[in-house]
Amino acid sequence: MQRKTNTALFFITAVLLGYALWKGGPSLAGRGLTVGLKQLLRVVPMVTAAFLAAGLMKRLITTELINHWLGHKAGWRGLFIGWLAGSLIPGGPYVYYPIALSLLQSGIGMGPLMAFVLGKQLSSLERLLVEFPLLGPRLTMVRFGLTCFFPLLLAVVASLIAPTAPGLPDKEAS
């Protein structure tokens, strides 16, 4: 997966490099490569810190902890804890969707479940760590500021529309 991504990226780089050489000769291509390398060097320390923090968060915020937090919480407390848990849990969709499924199977309500998934997608702390160095502070803060409360807000709407969780996917429903 990772190797495929890299191959594709280096292929795109080669195509762009070829186009830059054809269009503006070595000076244009060289300018592009220099700009890219300069920006890369600037973000490397930040990205290193971000990955160290992400590795530590994995040890601190475990699936068991999330399950424990969300165990039998209902009402506002459940919504808030769902949002917090989603915002804190590290990992991609291959991590948080299986956790969401286990929460669903343990009988969590629709509100806390929605707060968890949307919290991961819109107000994730781990994502914030990556966004700051790569998107820059202004874009990151505006994006986060505008959308970070929506998981909670939309989870309230979800719990009004469909108070109970959706049940298991069709193939497992009786």
Binding site: L9, T13, L16, G32, L33, L40
Partner: peptide
């Protein structure tokens, strides 16, 4: 990723 960023910037 960053070489692409730089080349797009130039192109």
């Amino acid at each position: 990723a960053f070489l692409i960023v730089g080349l797009l910037d130039a192109l």
